[in-house]
Measured scan of single mutants.
Amino acid sequence: KLETFPLDVLVNTAAEDLPRGVDPSRKENHLSDEDFKAVFGMTRSAFANLPLWKQQNLKKEKGLF
């Protein structure tokens, strides 16, 4: 399991300012399950079932792209 970080560490943070080991294209993977659901309004599995373009739009909207 990946290390999780608080939302404010990941949202609207440039790649070079992210904690070590965080993939800038997969910031959402480093949210706790609770934060993930609070941000996206759905579970990880529901998010994973969305088309890629919709996932990317949601990530942009939430500052996690």
Rank of each mutant, 00 (worst) to 15 (best):
K1D: 13
K1N: 13
K1A: 14
L2Y: 15
L2F: 15
L2V: 14
L2M: 12
E3Q: 13
E3P: 14
T4R: 08
T4L: 11
T4G: 04
F5A: 03
F5L: 07
F5V: 06
P6L: 04
P6R: 02
L7W: 08
L7D: 02
L7F: 10
D8N: 13
V9A: 09
V9L: 14
V9E: 06
V11N: 05
N12A: 08
T13S: 13
A14T: 11
A14P: 13
A15G: 09
A15C: 15
A15Q: 10
A15V: 14
A15N: 15
A15M: 11
E16F: 02
E16C: 14
E16W: 02
D17G: 08
D17E: 11
D17L: 10
L18E: 04
L18F: 07
L18Y: 06
P19A: 03
P19N: 03
R20K: 15
R20C: 15
G21S: 09
G21H: 08
G21M: 06
V22K: 02
D23P: 03
D23C: 10
D23G: 02
D23A: 03
P24E: 06
P24K: 07
R26D: 04
R26E: 06
R26N: 11
K27C: 06
K27F: 05
E28N: 02
N29S: 10
N29A: 15
H30Y: 15
L31W: 02
L31D: 01
L31Q: 01
L31N: 01
D33V: 06
E34P: 08
F36S: 00
A38Y: 13
V39H: 05
V39C: 12
F40V: 01
G41S: 08
G41D: 09
M42W: 01
M42G: 00
M42H: 01
M42Q: 02
R44W: 04
R44Y: 05
S45H: 14
S45E: 14
S45W: 12
A46T: 11
F47A: 00
F47N: 00
A48E: 11
L50G: 00
L50Y: 04
L52E: 12
W53C: 13
K54F: 11
K54L: 15
Q55D: 00
Q55C: 01
N57S: 14
N57R: 14
L58C: 05
L58G: 00
K60D: 06
E61A: 12
E61N: 08
E61Q: 12
G63H: 05
F65M: 14
F65V: 10
